[in-house]
Design a protein around this nucleic acid. Sequence first.
DNA 1: TACCATAACAAACATATGTTAGTCCGACAA
DNA 2: TTGTCGGACTAACATATGTTTGTTATGGTA
Lengths: 254, 254
Amino acid sequence: MSIANISPLVRMADKLALHAPISVEDRVSLLELPYASRFFEAGSYLLRDGDTRDQCGMLVSGFAYRHKINVEGLRQIVSIHIPGEVYDLQQLHLATADTNVQALTRCEIATIPHEALRRLAAERPSVAHALTVTTIVELSMSREWMLGIGRRDARTRLAHLLCEFAFRLDKHGLPPGQAYELPMTQEQLADTLGLTAVHVNRVLKGLVNDGLIVHNRRGVTIPDWAVLVAQGGFNSRYLHMNPPDAIVRPPDHA
Amino acid sequence: MSIANISPLVRMADKLALHAPISVEDRVSLLELPYASRFFEAGSYLLRDGDTRDQCGMLVSGFAYRHKINVEGLRQIVSIHIPGEVYDLQQLHLATADTNVQALTRCEIATIPHEALRRLAAERPSVAHALTVTTIVELSMSREWMLGIGRRDARTRLAHLLCEFAFRLDKHGLPPGQAYELPMTQEQLADTLGLTAVHVNRVLKGLVNDGLIVHNRRGVTIPDWAVLVAQGGFNSRYLHMNPPDAIVRPPDHA
DNA sequence: TACCATAACAAACATATGTTAGTCCGACAA
DNA sequence: TTGTCGGACTAACATATGTTTGTTATGGTA
């Protein structure tokens, strides 16, 4: 089977398997879900506060960010989404969205009808469980971010975020990959950290000067994982990831 | 039927009904759940980071708060729980807890075996749905708090929190009750708002001086709901509450 | 009544972070 | 080549919030 014929839904199955046991049969049933695929340019809204949906959207490629805006127009980014994640799973249970989701880069979206997903969840409790765990992990992550914004200083906050990205983007080996793409502007970083762009610039340069990270155009590399982890006070437990060998693949996919 | 014989689980059913449709049969089945009841003193830990559970705990009376602690020992309170709420629902799906929950006041806890709750959820999709919605609403609330900590100034943040409490504690009429019990110390308020106790004191006094609230020993009263709402930039949509008449009660409970 | 713990309150001072207002630079289009 | 634009970057200054330290109420208790 050529790469071109692999369903984009494998990304979703892989992602679910990071947090909950997914059997071979579960995986097959996920790949049989109906879907439609489409591209969005960077900056497009994938979901708007107040929207109603009858389909779920999964990021096949690219990045997206979720944000809220207060009465003064200030923006707070409350989560970043990476490929394989369903960014509007909650709309399966709630009538209207309470956040905005915007494309961070150009990205490909696969949409799956709510009805099909509901049917699958009803038939396969393990899939339903995996979807629920997904939401719970999002909750856990948002609490960790609250701790950061409320009780960590700017430098620690930024280091922690960079660790989190490294960990989540990693194929799940240890230690996480030393280099990754970070397509966020300093203003966007500021809005996720509860800082200003100017201060992000200061702190970012501080981390670079002190050799904790290398930050060349659009990418970050981490020379010493342990050092950055220490600076960020990072502990991956809140991400609730399974050990890598918990990921089960159908035999024909190996 | 005398008050003394009413199961504490009605509080849970009422709470679920705030967010999702609960039929009379659902309600009856909830009241038939096995449970054990017990009291905890203020300050007791109801759940610790890392704990494993085989029962869920519901607050029958009293208040509790959930918090995380960073490497420097600084504490961030990430949610406040009020009667009727199940504070460790997530342990139904996750092996270990990632937050601490501590009693804010002396409180009564009813524990329900996971097994019984799982069986009920499997039998009654509407109950399963209501439980899921509960988690999603917690996620929504935590995102709103992130917005506050990251992008609202101290005064607005405090006003918003006071509005939220008024709204959640209210029996759900409009406008919310003008007075309620607030058994939190200024240090606890500080830890939920991402401030220091000293600054909470300053800001609290500011709100009192300007007539936005009256703050007499352990309680808050709100002379003009609209004014405080404006100061806090408060919009209750993120709480995802049903209109009051959506709450269905069994006939013998009216 | 005295004692003790806890919380509220206050003032002086310190600083992390925000604000404003620019310059510089690379990417891209005409 | 020139022009435009967004983003990175800088510097001087402003301020919201934190820190430290202590005093004052309050409530429980012996």
